[in-house]
């Protein structure tokens, strides 16, 4: 039983990393400047590395013989459990960086705590991911400030990215029975415990950037339970195409 729960938890974190990595990989070759293109690919690769470790861990805990690829390419929308935030389209560079910052500010609080998990495999992934997230959040925060406090156009774009994505941030802190049960055992980090730390990271950056969260925007959630936005299906159609077209083939 504990294993099925841990599998579900690892899958959530793995799906977040996998889908966000995929979104960033859509930028590669099309970035706003060569140096930034290379930086986006680095973040995408870090997240892909995290995803592979987490999916492999989920597959092991699940005990049904599914490896990283079976989990990544063999599930449909209802079985993906990533946050809605990470599947939202790239939009312009402002939208991408706001999405990244809202996520990074969470990841950088999650991983160091999870590195003390009583599950050794999770603790190991978390220790590695903590260092990556620390760099990611510095970079995405710097861009949010640059754009918010840049030109009139960049400010407007950053603000509209924030308006669009802010409602998806609330889902980060929603806990259900999976996290609750595992947090009690010292295996998972209760997401609700991260909210104030996240706020303490996000607020000063938005303030420096001169950006304000939209009022009364509500909370969009459901990703953890497989209730996704329309975007995920399209993402998977592209991402899973080869494995669907050639089932069982090796690559």
């Amino acid at each position: 039983m504990a294993d099925a729960l841990t599998a579900a938890y690892a899958l959530r974190l793995g799906d977040d990393a996998l889908i966000l990595s995929h979104r960033l990989s859509e930028w590669v070759g099309h970035g706003p400047e060569l140096e930034e293109d290379i930086a986006l690919a680095n973040t995408s690769l870090d997240l892909l590395g995290q995803a592979r470790l987490l999916l492999a861990c989920a597959g092991e805990r699940e005990g049904k013989g599914r490896d990283e690829d079976a989990l990544a390419y063999g599930r449909d929308v209802l079985d993906f459990s990533n946050l809605l935030l990470v599947e939202q389209p790239n939009g312009d560079f402002a939208q991408t960086m706001v999405r990244q910052f809202l996520f990074d500010a969470y990841a950088v609080e999650l991983w160091p705590r999870l590195s003390a998990s009583r599950d050794e495999a999770l603790a190991g992934v978390a220790g590695k991911a903590a260092k990556e997230a620390a760099y990611h959040v510095e970079q995405s925060a710097a861009w949010v400030v640059r754009m918010g406090d840049g030109t009139e156009e960049s400010h407007a774009r950053a603000q509209s990215g924030l308006n669009l994505l802010w409602p998806y941030a609330g889902e980060i802190f929603e806990a259900d029975e999976v996290e609750a049960a595992l947090a009690e055992k010292g295996i998972a980090v209760a997401p609700s415990a991260l909210r104030e730390h996240w706020q303490a990271r996000v607020e000063p950056v938005l303030e420096e950037a001169g950006l304000a969260p939209p009022e009364g925007a509500g909370v969009r959630k459901g990703g953890r339970q497989g209730r996704h936005s329309e975007h995920l299906g399209h993402l998977l159609a592209e991402f899973q195409f080869m494995q669907r077209a050639y089932p069982g083939a090796e690559w």
């Binding site: 995929h22 990989s25 859509e26 590669v28 070759g29 060569l34 293109d37 290379i38 690919a41 680095n42 995408s44 690769l45 892909l48 590395g49 995803a51 592979r52 999916l55 990283e68 690829d69 990544a72 390419y73 592209e238 991402f239 195409f241 080869m242 494995q243 050639y246 083939a249 690559w251």
Partner: peptide
């Protein structure tokens, strides 16, 4: 965005990044 395995995806990302 269509690499057929996660390993191939990581390799291709690193390679395209190298070209940059």
């Amino acid at each position: 965005t269509r690499a057929p395995s996660l390993r191939r995806k990581a390799i291709l990302l690193a390679k395209v990044q190298d070209e940059g």
